[in-house]
Write a protein that binds this DNA or RNA. Structure first.
Length: 425
RNA sequence: GGAGGGGUGACCGAGUGGUCGAAGGUGCUCGCCUGGAAAGCGAGUGUGCCGUUCUACGGUACCGAGGGUUCGAAUCCCUCCCCCUCCGCCA
């Protein structure tokens, strides 16, 4: 959510953001400004009426104490009339506030000036490609074949027990998942992130806080009986951890990491890229979250990016870094990078991490603030997050890139101790 | 799930219908005191919104959330949420 005062003082900037993100009709801004005008006028009228009523009420109290009941009675009659007016004005204020909020929730975050303008993923910038794609003197197999050969993942039984996109990891496949979990969490902790175990269900307030609601409603599963959502990413509980809090400026930046499963409905995404581990309804991830002073926001973004990339470096996986363009970056982000790992068996890039800053967009919805110095006015923090990393596609790339001509798979050195084995054979 | 107790400012805690945004204390900020510090003394110290103005002031709302009674609600009534204790159930 953007700051209404900022929109009022520079509406053109917001119209341009709407256009650049392809996120709606720029005239939305003008509608919003009209509603804002109405809201402020109505509030002023309400408050003036309330002030009059408060004056009368304290006069009534004073008169009654002095025993001047007749004079008090005249004022009581006047306040009775004011009461109706106040009720009506309160209703109007509630209504206009709700309308303004609905409009504000439809307005996306404004992209940072460094973000390339573009309409779709075609316009994302490949900033860098790191590492060498492995060369093979044979035809490398896709990971679903390797997983099948070595009994690492059981898609069919997962589909039977739950549904498509809910695989079992079996034997060394399961151990490898556990190895990734510990490997990623230990790395994050070494880089200064506090380890957390968040709840895996969230309530609607939390979902709105980080921006999953109302605009990405169909992304999540839902438990209607108890009004919970299974988390689509650890970002949601982790960032909402400090919702409605005023933080101590000396505690910033707050850096948290957590492992969690993630559930996504992926409605309407059935296509060519759903085979094997490429796109699942349930997957595991280590998530990194930072809550920072606004001045440190973009330094933190670079650092967070480095945290995610270093994990790929350590695993020896070739990857590329994409700076997302305005049209492909999402509603809530101000700037976003994707990291894509090379998958040799499929000969394509797979997204394993998304690293973003939201500036104050999420913080405003969540009311996460800090006090710059004692007795100063509170200000909103900036929030950031990044995957570090998502397991299934990392696993896919590990299997495909490290396969040998005789059908074995070599584990990268840092993972061997965690997994407890060096080769899958 | 059953029974009981409770949710007040950064924290503790008082407040059962009007002068209460809320006593007192702790913490914090500034000043005095001191060679320096502690103690002590004095002053200040919630959040949001609206308005004026240009940064202080005025107004308004907020005592778990929502609704009601009343001229007037932290205080009375109703619904819900959360926490604690005991019982039950349970990994």
């Amino acid at each position: 959510m953007l700051d209404i005062d900022a929109i009022r003082s520079d509406p053109q900037r917001v119209r341009e953001a709407l256009r650049a993100k392809g996120a709606g009709d720029p005239s939305l801004v003008d509608t919003l400004l009209e509603v804002d005008e109405e809201r402020r006028a109505t509030i002023t009228e309400l408050q003036e009426t309330q002030a009059r009523q408060n004056d009368l009420s304290s006069e009534i109290g004073a008169l009654k104490r002095e025993g001047k009941d007749e004079e008090a009675q005249a004022r009581i009659e006047e306040t009775s009339r004011l009461k109706e007016k106040i009720q009506e004005l309160e209703d109007r204020v509630d209504d206009v506030k709700a309308r303004q909020r609905d409009l504000l929730l439809k307005i996306p975050n404004v992209p940072h000036p460094s973000v390339p303008v573009g309409a779709s993923e075609e316009d994302n910038e490949v900033e860098d490609t790191i590492g060498e794609k492995p060369a093979f003197d044979f035809e490398p197999a896709p990971h679903w074949e390797l997983a099948d050969t070595h009994d690492l993942v059981d898609f069919e039984r997962g589909a039977k027990v739950t549904g498509s996109g809910f695989p079992f990891y079996t034997g060394r496949g399961a151990r490898l998942q556990r190895a990734l979990l510990n490997f990623f969490l230990d790395r994050a902790r070494d880089r200064g992130y506090k380890e957390m175990q968040p709840p895996k269900f969230i309530n609607p307030e939390s979902a709105e806080g980080t921006g999953q609601l109302p605009d990405k409603d169909d992304l999540m599963y839902r438990i209607p009986r108890d009004d919970f959502f299974p988390i689509p990413t650890g970002e949601v509980p982790m960032t909402n951890f400090h919702r409605d809090e005023i933080l101590d400026v000396d505690d910033l930046p707050l850096k948290y990491c957590a492992y969690s499963p993630c559930w996504r409905r992926e409605a309407g995404s059935y296509g060519a890229d759903v085979r094997g581990l490429n796109r699942l309804h349930e997957f595991d991830k280590v998530e990194l979250v930072q809550i920072v002073h606004p001045d440190d926001s973009y330094r933190a973004l670079d650092a967070l990016l480095d945290d995610a990339e270093s994990a790929l470096d350590a695993l020896g996986l070739p990857y590329r870094r994409l700076l997302m363009c305005t049209g492909d970056m999402g509603f809530t982000q101000a700037k976003k990078y994707d990291l894509e790992v090379w998958s040799a068996g499929q000969e394509k890039w797979l997204e394993v991490s998304s690293v973003s800053t939201f500036e104050a967009f999420q913080a405003r919805r969540m009311q996460i603030r800090y006090r710059p110095e004692p007795e100063a006015r509170t200000r909103l923090v900036h929030t950031l997050n990044g995957s570090g990393l998502a397991f299934p596609r990392v696993l896919a790339a590990l299997l495909e890139n490290n396969q040998t001509a005789d059908g074995r798979i070599r584990l990268p050195d840092p993972l061997r101790e965690y997994a407890g084995f060096d080769w899958i054979e």
